[in-house]
Design a protein around this nucleic acid. Structure first.
Lengths: 126, 126, 126, 126
DNA sequence: GTGGTCTAGACCACT
DNA sequence: GTGGTCTAGACCACC
């Protein structure tokens, strides 16, 4: 489900965050679907549940999860998300990276192709 | 010159790295130009010179600086930098971000405009 | 474990780097084995942990270590290390030295014997 | 005559030392030949004569130069050099490097070929 | 003056 | 407990 690489220096909880985010973005996990419990996922990845817990809280903070006490964690629907703020940050990040690769000599066609590629990809089964 | 926020969680030396990288990319600092000495910049930002040192070594490692012992640090020329590896990583980062904003509902025209905007901007006087 | 000479001009952290590299090469430290923590080794050698840190980061950069935050440092497996660049540099270093001893009158048989000796040595229990 | 690269971090005086050593080893500079004065070489390389001076002193210490006061510096003849000590150090350096490339997977034939190549090369005009 | 190394001691993030 | 960051202050090598 998610690949964790303990050797690459990236904190494990962050790898879980981006891993789950990827699954949501690719459409593998769909809105209102239940995600595994912290203990369950901890057992599967042989990782301390505390670490999973931390990742889940972060995903909730970022608006990808919502928690129902006593029931578990679920994937948020992105429709009604006050995501203006997040979008601005992401766009800014993209811009900084674009400026960097431009400085390193990448032609803009290369980037446009990349965008086309991403947008023409159908997200699995979303 | 650079704005440092000591309490936003991002390590100070990383903020210096990205700050100076920005100045180089924007063309404010030009190839072979001398950058402030570690002590000088440390004084200006009221930050310990050791921290500046760490940032400078990182910039050297990434190919943006070169050091002449006893003289100072200088901006590298980007011409012949074996930057294939770095470019691949950057492109991958961009792709992940693009996928994320796509999921959040950003139309691809928006991104294409962003690219055009960046590429039509003339970098100061580079 | 490692002998440090603080007054021979060679930086302490470099002595630690080559010392540990030797232990790895000789097979005393094996892949995925944990190495002493920075504090622990600092205590043993009565050297500041920061200095050990610097050595460990260098070993990581050279591909001999990997770091798991919160767990410790471990010996890397050398299988898939993009070490082409490193190999070229090492070979060049060897060539320069060979030219130098040749000039000083060492017969080539002497060097060939040296190579045979090194290659017939079994590395401990690797 | 000698190429100095101020950008690569290697102290300039060391680059001069190895550069001149190379010229001697390759046979370009022959025993008892006079080498340029510190001021002359400093002018040619646009480098501070103090730095050249330091390099010359180091070459004298290593037995490659001898100084005649009031006349200048000359290339030593290697015959009557108490070079046992130096040879031992060089051989040890070579051995360490050989062990390292062996660990990285270089076959011993590769090294033997390297030796043959160096020894079959005729040193220009020595 | 410049960068490079080292120490002592402190605080934080990760597991 | 582990590594990662930061400070303050010191000494050395290089030019």
């Amino acid at each position: 489900m998610i690949n964790i690489d303990v050797k690459n220096g990236v904190p494990i909880y962050e790898q879980i965050v981006s891993g789950l985010k990827q699954l949501i973005i690719k459409g593998v996990l769909k809105p209102d679907e239940k995600v595994p419990s912290v203990r369950e996922l901890g057992r599967r990845l042989t990782i301390n549940p505390n670490t999973i817990q931390k990742a889940y809280r972060e995903l909730e903070r970022q608006g990808y999860f919502y928690t129902v006490i006593g029931k578990g964690n679920f994937v948020s629907d992105q429709e009604n998300n006050g995501n203006v703020q997040k979008l601005r940050e992401l766009t800014e990040d993209i811009q900084v990276l674009i400026e960097e690769v431009k400085y390193l000599g990448v032609p803009q066609e290369h980037l446009i192709n990349l965008i086309h590629a991403v947008y023409s990809k159908e997200d699995g089964e979303r």
